[in-house]
Simulated scan of single mutants.
Amino acid sequence: MVDPKRVTAPQIADTYGRALTTVTTDWIPRPEFPDSVGRDGRNKTYDAQAVADFVRDHIERPTVEFEPTRLYTAREIETLTGIKTSTIRADKSRRRWPQPDDTSGRADRWLGAAITRTLADRRPYHRGGADNQVPPAPGGTFRPGDVVLDADGQIRVRTSHPELVWRHPGDGLTGTAQDGTLHDIDVPRPLTLLVRDGRAVGGRLIEE
């Protein structure tokens, strides 16, 4: 019997409403995830409080209230929301992020009201939901180098980065570079798997 203060991967998945594959292939490999403290049969066990701290600090995003008339730079938005400046730049070029309200200074700035509206339109990450899960794909979960088409018609490539798990296909459709530019929540669902292991797979829609 598992110590109630220790949890296995299946228990973590059940507690936080995530697919087991999300916990085993996305959360646990991250350097920030707590080390195993033992075993329960075949399953490693982890300190429950340490896991809760990891989820709080690295998975769940707190609600941010922006002052409607204040101007914010991309760097300030990143600090408050966790959305990378590179993601903001990329989304602005694709009209998924509004044009800045102020361009008079060295850095573009957006009104808090505009940021709030934009974030409300993005699919949120929430505990117990399907967002930010690595969905099942033919032959297993998404792998570095997989190429998908997102709901906005954009091509994305899976990376091996622990947090920025998607990138733009600028380095080639089947590259497996570690450096990513997008968090999983920044890639709108559903996703269609296009390429795996360098071969077309017929455009298979991944249901979540």
Rank of each mutant, 00 (worst) to 15 (best):
N43V: 10
V147P: 01
D150T: 06
A52G: 11
R123W: 06
D186Y: 02
T22C: 06
D121Y: 13
V64Y: 05
A137L: 04
R123H: 13
E76L: 01
V2Q: 01
D171Y: 12
R158A: 10
G175W: 00
A130S: 15
D53W: 01
K92R: 15
T8L: 07
P190G: 12
E163F: 07
A120I: 13
T81K: 08
A9H: 11
V51N: 07
P31F: 04
Y16T: 08
D91W: 02
R94Y: 14
S86N: 12
F66A: 09
A13F: 05
L20W: 08
T21C: 07
A13I: 11
E208K: 07
V157T: 09
A50P: 08
V148F: 06
T79Y: 00
E65H: 15
L193N: 01
R167Y: 09
A13R: 02
D47K: 00
V2L: 06
Y46R: 07
K44S: 10
I155T: 15
D108K: 01
T103V: 14
Y16N: 10
V23C: 02
D40W: 10
P138C: 07
P190L: 11
I206E: 02
L80D: 05
D3G: 06
Q178C: 05
G145R: 11
T21D: 14
G128Y: 01
V187S: 05
A52M: 08
R199H: 10
V157C: 02
A113M: 10
P138M: 00
K92T: 15
R109Q: 13
T87N: 07
